[in-house]
Design a protein around this nucleic acid. Structure first.
Length: 294
DNA sequence: ATAGGCACCTGGTGGC
DNA sequence: TGCCACCAGGTGCCTA
């Protein structure tokens, strides 16, 4: 489910257990995700301190004391699981001191591809069934120039995203606004769900050509995008607490959407009696209200 | 440069 | 229970 708000929620969940902490051991259980892992990734992650945990678009960036940065993308199905350290006690403790693993954790589950054991015994497990995710390592100094990051558009919650930018980028575009807002070169971080939610709130039909949106409605899109994402981050933060109480799984919260996934259900705009429709645009579902969105 | 379609991969769901 | 079609929150790459 990871769009910008979910990735930000994962980052915030990881922060207290990773930032400022040392990775005691890394296990890499397969050679690749979407692409091959960088050479010697496990070795390069072992014994280094995480000095900062950042986010750019849907990427999590962990700056390391080795002057490298770990880039993580969750793809479609990537998850992070935080397992607190289990206290060592009884006979097991004596045996454990012989090995490198000082804390008890369950055996890796299916699709647990990368495991980071922090110095205090907290385990962070990257699980990704579909393997559309990615990890890479690069020098921190040139992280912004990474091929996956270099061409990204502005952060929608940052100062570089504003009305004149959006106007300029939508100008002359013969593509549906749905596709334009999914284009990470125009804005970084929106995905299928939040584009649907944004267009519903902006009352713009997803198939409308980007170039044919009035100046006023283009201007209105900017705060709407910001609001939609900011509200989702807040919702993620509250669900984060819930998940930490249960199984520690990050990247997995569901909150109520106004249109996404609501095909056939009543439009939630007060006074509107229409129902939400679904159309397919470039292979992906768009949900909208035909009465409210033009 | 821009636009559209395909590919990558696994799992869940619902119909027969 | 099995089989099958379809669906899924992403995005790089290829083609005109």
């Amino acid at each position: 489910m990871p769009e910008l708000p979910e990735v930000e929620t994962v980052r915030r969940g990881l922060m207290p257990v990773m930032e400022g902490r040392i990775i005691a051991r890394a296990a890499v259980n397969r050679p690749d995700l979407r692409w091959p892992f960088p050479p010697n990734m496990a070795t390069r992650l072992t014994g280094v301190r995480v000095t900062a945990l950042r986010r750019r678009s849907k990427y999590i960036l962990a700056d390391l004391s080795s002057c490298e940065t770990l880039l993580v993308h969750l793809g479609m199905s990537g998850r992070m699981l935080i397992s607190p350290p289990a206290p060592i006690s009884g006979e097991g403790a004596a045996r454990e001191t012989l090995g490198e693993w000082h804390h008890h954790h369950p055996a890796p589950a299916k699709h647990d591809h990368v495991i980071l054991d922090m110095e205090d015994g907290t385990r962070i497990t990257f699980n990704d069934a579909r393997r559309f995710g990615a990890m890479d390592l690069m020098p921190t100094a040139t992280a912004d120039a990474h091929p996956l990051l270099a061409a990204l558009g502005p952060e929608p919650l940052g100062n570089a995203f504003h009305e004149s930018w959006l106007t300029q980028r939508l100008k002359g575009r013969n593509t549906p606004i749905k596709s334009a807002l999914l284009d990470q070169h125009i804005i970084a971080g929106l995905g299928n769900i939040y584009v649907c939610e944004t267009l519903y709130r902006a009352r713009i039909h997803p198939a409308r050509k980007a170039a044919r949106i009035s100046a006023a409605r283009t201007a209105a899109l900017v705060p709407i995008i910001r609001d939609v994402l900011a509200e989702a981050i807040i919702a993620g933060g509250s669900s984060l607490r819930d998940y930490r109480q249960t199984d520690g799984e990050l990247g997995y919260f569901q909150h109520s959407f106004q249109v996404y996934g609501r095909e056939g259900q009543p439009c939630l705009t007060p006074g509107c009696t229409d129902t939400i429709r679904r159309i397919v645009q470039s292979g992906r579902s768009s949900f909208y209200c035909p009465t409210c969105q033009k």
